[in-house]
C-alpha cells in the first residue's frame, strides 16, 4: 500500500500529489492519503470520485485518512492542443523591419504610396507578423498623423507587437509624437530580429 502524506500542504498540492501517486501505481493497488484540513479532504475525495474510484474517509482527531483502490486508468487527456486555442493561429513567426517609410528603390512618390498599400493591407492578410520594428525613417509611420496609423493600431490590437527605435525617435525629435507601439532600444530590437523565424525588410 502506498502512502501520500499531504499534511501541512495547502491546496492544490494534495491534489497534485494524489494524482501523481495514482498514475505511478498499478491497478488494484491501494493508496492512502493523509490530510489535515477539511477542504483538502473534500477536494481530494471529489477528484477521486470523478475518476470513478471509490474512496473511504476516516477522521482521527485532526487527521483525515483517505483510502482508495486504483480501479481503471487515471483519466488522461494527451490532446491538450485540441482543446486550448490560446495560440493565436493568425500570428505567424515572422517579423517586419521598416527601415524607411517608402517601399523599394526608384521613384520616391511611388515608394511612398506602395508602403501605404503594404501596411494597410496587412490586417487583411491571414498570416500576420508576430512583431514589427521601426528604424530610421521608418519611425515616421508610427507617429501622429502617419497615413498608416489606423492599420498599425489594428494590427497591435490583433496581437502584433510594435517596437519603435528610441534613438531614431530622438534624432528626428519625434519622441513625444509616438502614436502606436512602444519605444525600444537596439538591444531589444536585435533580440527580436535574431530570434525571429524570418525577417521581412520592405
Amino acid at each position: 500500500m502506498k502512502t501520500v502524506d499531504a499534511r501541512g500542504k495547502l491546496c492544490p498540492v494534495p491534489l497534485i500529489m494524489t494524482k501523481k501517486a495514482l498514475t505511478e501505481m498499478s491497478e488494484n493497488e491501494t493508496l492512502e492519503v493523509l490530510l489535515d484540513n477539511d477542504t483538502s479532504a473534500k477536494n481530494v475525495t471529489r477528484m477521486l470520485e470523478e475518476f470513478r474510484m471509490s474512496v473511504s474517509l476516516t477522521k482521527n482527531g485532526n487527521i483525515f485518512k483517505l483510502t482508495v483502490t486504483k480501479t481503471g486508468e487515471v483519466p488522461e487527456n494527451s490532446h491538450a492542443e485540441d482543446f486550448c486555442e490560446i495560440e493565436n493561429q493568425e500570428i505567424s513567426n515572422y517579423v517586419i523591419a521598416f527601415q524607411r517609410n517608402t517601399l523599394g528603390e526608384g521613384n520616391a512618390d511611388l515608394g511612398i504610396i506602395l508602403l501605404k498599400a503594404f501596411v494597410n493591407t496587412l490586417p487583411e492578410v491571414n498570416a500576420k507578423p508576430r512583431k514589427m520594428v521601426f528604424l530610421n525613417a521608418g519611425i515616421f509611420l508610427a507617429i501622429n498623423d502617419s497615413p498608416v496609423l489606423e492599420a498599425l493600431k489594428t494590427l497591435e490590437n490583433m496581437g502584433t507587437e510594435i517596437l519603435v527605435c528610441g534613438t531614431c525617435l530622438d534624432f528626428y525629435e519625434k519622441k513625444n509624437e509616438l502614436a502606436v507601439g512602444k519605444v525600444s532600444n537596439m538591444y531589444d530590437i536585435l533580440e527580436v530580429l535574431a530570434t525571429a523565424g524570418s525577417v521581412l525588410y520592405p
Binding site: P12, N43, R46, N77, A80, C84, E87
Partner: peptide, 28 residues
C-alpha cells in the same frame, strides 16, 4: 462546447497534473 474554449497556455497541462484550485470545487 469545451473544444472551442480559448484558454491560457499551459493551463490545461497544469490541470492535468492535478493543479486544481479550491475555487473549482466550490464552483462545482
Amino acid at each position: 462546447s469545451p473544444a472551442n474554449l480559448p484558454c491560457f497556455d499551459t493551463a490545461y497541462a497544469l490541470v492535468e497534473t492535478g493543479c486544481i484550485p479550491g475555487a473549482c470545487f466550490r464552483n462545482l
